[in-house]
């Protein structure tokens, strides 16, 4: 028989603040991403070849011809659907199954638990043993897909340099830098690179890769937030330039 303590928690600090801030942050970003996804406009600056990462690659018939770097391979989407709906399942899947985001939303949205040593409100708990949460084990597939999309983002960022250098180029470059750091710091990447080995001494290159990724992995939470926020900043910048709201600050040409 456990000690009989009626209170849900005896914590006296503001334990509710981190989950609340996480929930608010994720909600705001989700709303922004949804609005931009279904806007279907202001994603390409033809003059400077800026393409927002949210629409990259643009693969469907309704894409602006110059924004479709790999061609308009897919037919026009029905109804209110826009080009990003092709790639968003992969990007969203990578973030949703990410070990950091799992912690974040299990705590903030599902309150399982809301904070350490604070009782959760659910009567039953089966963790990640059943459908749908057993699908969290697919994280590495989303990692593979996100890595491919990252390479395309890198291509877009360098392609934009073909017209000169402006603030938009710097924004796109920082964006792919943060996305690359977040993707490389992923726990699945750490495992694939070398974590799954039993004998590091027999695989010195993979051991080196594992130690470097482990250093990045220690900052996975910070990189998750920085890259997520900066994708929105990048998209907003491209949208503002594309819509003519602001002019791009040019350094060269």
């Amino acid at each position: 028989m456990r000690a009989q303590i009626a209170q849900r928690t005896l914590r006296t600090d503001r334990w509710w603040l981190p989950p609340l801030a996480t929930f608010a942050g994720l909600l705001l970003i989700s709303i922004y991403a949804a609005v931009r996804t279904f806007m279907g406009d202001h994603y390409w600056v033809d003059e400077y070849r800026y393409l927002t990462p949210m629409y990259s690659p643009c693969l469907t018939e309704e894409c602006l011809p110059n924004a479709a770097h790999f061609g308009r391979l897919l037919p026009e989407l029905p109804g209110f659907l826009t080009p990003p709906v092709i790639i968003i399942p992969f990007l969203l899947g990578f973030r949703v199954t990410c070990y950091y985001y799992r912690k974040a939303y299990y705590r903030a949205a599902w309150m399982s638990p809301p904070a350490c040593a604070v009782a959760e409100p659910h009567a039953k708990y089966t963790g990640e043993t059943r459908f749908p949460l057993i699908a969290q084990n697919l994280h590495r597939y989303f990692f593979y897909a996100a890595s491919l999309l990252l390479l395309i983002n890198v291509y877009d960022a360098f392609y934009a340099f073909s017209t000169g250098i402006g603030l938009g180029n710097i924004v796109l470059l920082v964006n792919v830098g943060l996305l690359a750091a977040y993707t490389l710091s992923c726990h699945s990447c750490r495992h694939i690179a070398g974590g799954r080995l039993k004998h590091f001494s027999k695989h010195p290159v993979r051991y080196w890769a594992w130690t470097q990724i482990s250093k990045l992995n220690a900052k996975h939470m910070q990189l998750a937030w920085a890259s997520l926020i900066f994708v929105c900043v990048t998209d907003l910048y491209v949208a503002l330039v594309a819509s003519g709201t602001i002019a791009d600050l040019r350094f060269v040409n």
Binding site: Y99, R102, K103, Y106, R107, S112, P113, C116, A117, Y125, T126, G127, E128, T129, L133, I134, H187, N217, A218
Partner: peptide, 21 residues
């Protein structure tokens, strides 16, 4: 499979072992 990696074990470890990661 029951573990949902919410990292409380790591937070309370007095030896600072990175249990979750």
């Amino acid at each position: 499979g029951l573990c949902n990696i919410t990292k409380c074990c790591t937070e309370v470890c007095p030896e600072h072992i990175k249990i979750t990661d």
